[in-house]
Design a protein around this nucleic acid. Structure first.
Length: 805
DNA sequence: CCGCTTGAAATA
DNA sequence: ATTTCAAGCGGT
């Protein structure tokens, strides 16, 4: 009986979200497996698309003639059983297309690219041929690059049977290769030949000697043989001609670690750490899935707990997956894992080239790498037999992907933990309210590390009331206490970290006469001043224009800059402390690849006294000489229309405070704020996470917000504001039919930034506890959104959105 | 009445 | 996503 393959085609639409049946050609019978990539004809022409096999069977419910699979791209599945099931779950959970989920899980290089060419056929007239094919050859066909008239004419010729479209599907997944050399003869035979080679061919003798101590049929890179045997490549060629050895193509792995790291040994644990490791170890051994929330103050040695737990999993011949928020921001963490576990560590993140990503992926897939460290998408790493999953800084919002599939890596990690019967360890100094609440309900086992290692004290935190300070210092960014604290550190040759909280805040231009603010023509947000490029830039769409000298509205010359940017602060800071060496770290100074690490390294080497940066400096820095942390504006995020504003502020302040006093010297923190009485700021001062948790939970309860309620956000966008708004109202009306009166519907409302990239955004947020029909209702919305999607109306569904704005 | 434009439907 | 099919409309 002929086999039939169930193929998910790479056409992300609702109509093609279910697999199509294809005949499996005889040569692939019993070879083709679910999880392999294929190329199939799809559509009435001879169009080829790529697809993924999701099943192989003998029957199909489709009664028509099956087309055969055109080509098979993999010799073994690129998605194992676990990842196939995960893809289905993910699609269901996030309202995304199944093929989109699969693409998200695979490294970029495994996505095939289709190229089209248009070629003349026999029926074409000489005049037409001369016009469209001047050199008589097929030409690339990309409707986006050709003008509309040409495209229309070519399509007309196609209908007339005068030209045809050719498809070329390219598999980009080319492994980097090098020439390999392997002995063809057994060592004894080689020794025999060595005795007979001419005296004037000493290099051939050297080669033979080297080949003898190689394992037959095990190729080594030619470059290595050349170097080790002290010969030139010409001798290798001679050896190949004489049949001593065989040259082959050898796959090499690109190594993303550019510098070697010194190996480390496990450190001695304090009692709290030891207790945590013991609990996690027991869970790795046990069959029941038990998950943990490790709540450790900054500097409490969470990383060592992770590392020793990973070691336990490895000892049991299992693998470990460790997630970190953004790898570029935490090079120190990666280095520590690499130092402990060496070669078996694979690193996955967007800073690697596509080739490097693919190679790391293959090392994991082949089992060569057993410890994976990576950012969000590494949660899909093809590790098998996982023994432990760790998510560091679990509260970080970067774990949530804000494009389809809108998954949260935490949920995926928990799914995989359950599948693999292994514990998931969520770690943070300031856990998300969701996770802490789940721990309170007993869903996670809480492991608390209340003390810093070696009993170092937490830094002393001072709150500076900027309302008072303004009276004496005017609109300077530095309060008197902070200035003297900085001066003290400069005198003592200690280092300072200054953070400028820029979330929801930037330097904009405003006219003092009429109040006009320069805005982006495409998006409804104010443009930000950039002194380095002498221009105004939009941070949403990249629009750039000249700095105005007169107000475009009232022609006044009193158009001035308001707000504070890192560049402006840097200038002011340098004026205040002329001798201080200042390093600036923000989106602009770290745009180039590797510049981030370079800045951190410079600071670590004490090539600068002050590190000034945005929230990206709050994470993971561990520099013993830093004894002062200053937060210039703590409360810019507090006013944002987002129920997580307090939580984010508290987390940020606690994280950044933890950068001070990591070594023997005590640390001090100054938080400048206009809201000194706000509980998020007060409790960040006492670094009292538990009090914050209780207080904030009360707020959430009062406002019916997560974690008391689930939330789902539906957004509609269109160039025409009325179209977006109308669509949103229709969606809400439809959804209300599926909701009980327990559910709370917020909106429809325009988004806080109503217009981005020339599109207007309207949204609705539904808060609910138990709505059995909601999922089906949302599914219907998704179905219905297919048709107007072609008219530029985009509808997205985001379960548990991170941004309510 | 035909050809062209435009939108909907099908793709195995 | 791309192609084919079908309906609408303006010119012959």
């Amino acid at each position: 009986m002929a086999q039939i393959g169930q193929i998910l085609v790479d056409v992300p639409t609702m109509q093609t979200n279910d697999p199509y049946s294809y005949a499996i050609p005889a040569e692939w019978e019993h070879q083709l497996q679910a999880g392999m990539r294929v190329i199939v004809p799809f559509g009435r022409g001879h169009r080829m698309v790529d697809g993924v096999v999701v099943g192989v069977s003998d029957v199909t419910s489709f009664d028509g003639t099956l087309k055969p699979i055109e080509a098979v791209l993999d010799l073994s599945p690129v998605l194992n059983e676990e990842l196939q099931r995960l893809a289905d779950w993910l699609a269901d959970e996030t309202f995304a297309f199944r093929i989109t989920c699969i693409q998200t899980m695979l490294p970029n290089l495994l996505k095939t690219k289709t190229e089209r060419e248009i070629a003349p056929l026999a029926a074409i007239t000489p005049a037409e041929k001369a016009q469209y094919f001047p050199d008589g050859e097929p030409r690339p066909f990309d409707p986006d690059k050709l003008d509309d008239g040409t495209v229309a004419n070519l399509l007309k010729l196609q209908r007339a049977g005068k030209v045809t479209v050719l498809y070329h599907v390219k598999n980009q997944a080319a492994a980097k290769t090098t020439v390999g050399v392997a002995p063809l003869l057994p060592p004894a035979k080689l020794a025999e030949i060595q005795a007979t080679v001419a005296k004037r061919a000493p290099k051939q003798a050297d080669l033979l000697a080297y080949l003898q101590q190689m394992v037959p049929k095990q190729p080594q890179p030619q470059a290595k043989v050349v170097k080790a045997a002290g010969i030139s490549s010409a001798v290798i060629n001679t050896g190949a001609e004489k049949g001593w050895l065989e040259k082959s193509t050898l796959e090499v792995y690109r190594d993303p670690f550019h510098q070697p790291v010194k190996p480390t040994q496990p450190l001695t644990l304090n009692p709290d750490q030891a207790k945590a490791v013991t609990a996690i170890t027991a869970a790795i051994d046990g069959d029941e899935t038990q998950n943990f929330l490790v709540e450790g103050v900054t500097g409490s040695g969470k990383t060592e707990v992770y590392l020793q737990s990973i070691a336990v999993a490895l000892r049991q011949k299992r693998t470990a997956l460790m997630l970190v928020p953004e790898i570029a921001l935490t090079p120190q963490m990666v280095n520590r894992v690499k130092a402990r576990f060496g070669e078996q560590v694979a690193v996955l993140h967007s800073g690697l080239s596509k080739g490097e990503q693919y190679d790391e992926w293959r090392r994991i897939d082949s089992g060569a790498a057993t410890v994976v460290v990576g950012a969000r998408s590494a949660v899909f790493a093809p590790v098998k037999n996982v023994g432990l999953i760790i998510m560091d800084e679990e509260h970080e919002s970067s774990y949530k992907q804000d494009e389809t599939p809108r998954y949260h890596a935490r949920d995926v990690a928990l799914w995989r933990g359950k599948y693999n019967h292994c514990p998931v360890v969520l770690g943070s100094a300031t856990p998300s309210l969701e996770s802490r609440a789940r721990a309170a309900k007993g869903l996670y086992t809480r492991l608390v590390l209340p003390k810093r290692v070696n009993d170092r004290p937490l830094p002393t935190v001072h709150i500076v009331d900027m309302r008072e300070e303004m009276k004496s210092i005017g609109d300077s960014d530095f309060s008197t206490p902070l200035v003297s604290a900085i001066q003290e550190r400069l005198d003592r040759h200690e280092q300072v970290v200054l953070m400028l909280n820029r979330r929801g805040y930037s330097s904009f231009v405003m006219c003092r006469d009429c109040g006009f603010v320069l805005k982006c023509p495409n998006c409804d947000i104010s443009l930000t001043l950039h002194m380095d490029s002498h221009s105004m830039k939009c941070h949403y769409c990249g629009h750039e224009e000249a700095i105005p000298k007169i107000c475009p509205n009232c022609h006044s010359h009193k158009i001035r800059y308001y707000g504070t940017g890192t560049q402006k602060v840097e200038t002011a800071l340098q004026a205040q402390f002329p001798t201080a060496r200042i390093l600036r770290m923000d989106v602009d100074s770290t745009r180039r690849k590797g510049s981030h690490e370079r800045i951190l390294k410079q600071f670590g080497n004490h090539e600068a006294d002050i590190l000034l940066g945005t929230q990206m400096i709050a994470k993971g820095l561990d520099y013993p000489n830093v004894t002062l942390v200053g937060v210039l504006n703590a409360d810019t995020a507090l006013g944002l229309p987002d129920f997580r504003a307090s939580e984010r502020t508290f987390q940020l302040l606690t994280q950044v405070s933890g950068r001070a006093g990591r070594s023997t010297k005590p640390g001090e923190v100054f938080i400048q704020t206009f809201n000194p009485d706000h509980y998020a700021i007060q409790l960040a001062q006492s670094q009292d996470y538990e009090r914050f948790f209780v207080t904030e939970m009360a707020m959430r309860h009062q406002g019916s917000y997560p974690p008391y309620y689930f939330a789902v956000q539906v957004t509609a966008s269109h160039e025409d504001e009325a179209v977006a708004a109308k669509a949103m109202y229709q969606i809400v009306d439809a959804l209300k039919l599926d909701l009980s009166d327990q559910a709370i519907v917020l909106g429809p409302t325009p988004k806080a930034i109503a217009r981005v990239k020339r599109k207007y955004y309207y949204q609705v947020v539904i808060k609910y506890k138990n709505e059995p029909d909601l999922k089906a209702g949302l599914e219907q919305i998704r179905q219905a959104a297919q048709i107007p999607a072609r008219h530029g109306l985009a509808v997205t569904i985001d379960p548990e959105p991170m941004n309510f704005m």
